[in-house]
């Protein structure tokens, strides 16, 4: 009897705990442009999660899943710059600033600021980036565009190719998350 009572009390409360949204097919792309060379790469197998109760955000991306137009560039990216054997993943754990669950009830993309720890090439930095959030049907859409400087993450660029790589990379993140089961 006691167990049943506990279930009756706990179950509705547990169901009412707001949803987490997640996906394995978020995308991250980056772009570097110099007069000598344009470099762009994308990764469409990024894991993303959003906690609609608290506004917590998490991303994880395997470095080896970044695809380049040139296979040699991809090799250099993993071998010489990101050292993917030692640092296989990039992660982000943060939260939407001044978040309330009511934000998702508004129509259209909501502009937000996200602050958190970005880990890349084994270096973790606190960053704050702009983005948008939108609840469309059962899908939670996240979008962000920001810049990352390789030098901030101890990614060495030899003098010989310095003119080919921009000082900062333009990073675009897009995620369409479904309710977590």
């Amino acid at each position: 009897m006691n167990v049943l009572l506990m279930l009756l009390v706990v179950l509705p409360a547990w169901l009412a705990v707001p949803l987490k949204y997640t996906t394995r097919t978020a995308s991250i792309s980056f772009f570097s442009s110099t007069p000598l060379e344009d470099i762009d790469a994308h990764n469409r197998q990024v894991g993303a999660a959003f906690d609609a109760a608290t506004g917590q955000v998490a991303f994880t991306a395997a470095m080896r899943d970044f695809q380049f137009k040139r296979s040699l560039m991809q090799e250099h990216f993993n071998e010489n710059y990101m050292e993917s054997e030692r640092y296989p993943k990039a992660t982000f754990a943060g939260r939407v600033l001044s978040y309330t669950p009511e934000l998702l009830q508004q129509a259209g993309p909501q502009t937000v600021q996200v602050e958190g720890d970005l880990t890349l090439h084994g270096v973790t930095r606190r960053v704050r980036v702009p983005g948008t959030l939108e609840l469309r049907g059962t899908q939670l859409l996240m979008q962000s565009k920001f810049t990352v400087a390789p030098a901030d993450f101890k990614i060495e660029i030899p003098a010989l190719v310095r003119a080919h790589l921009a000082k900062t990379m333009e990073v675009t993140v897009e995620a369409a998350c479904g309710p977590a089961t």
Binding site: A49, A62, E75, E79
Partner: peptide, 28 residues
Amino acid sequence: TRAYCQNDLLSSLERQTADSLRPTYTTA
């Protein structure tokens, strides 16, 4: 759970995506 949420969300995401790790080929 709320107190550890920031770490939990990332680590549960990493647990979820761990099984999707495909074999990666050694390069260079």
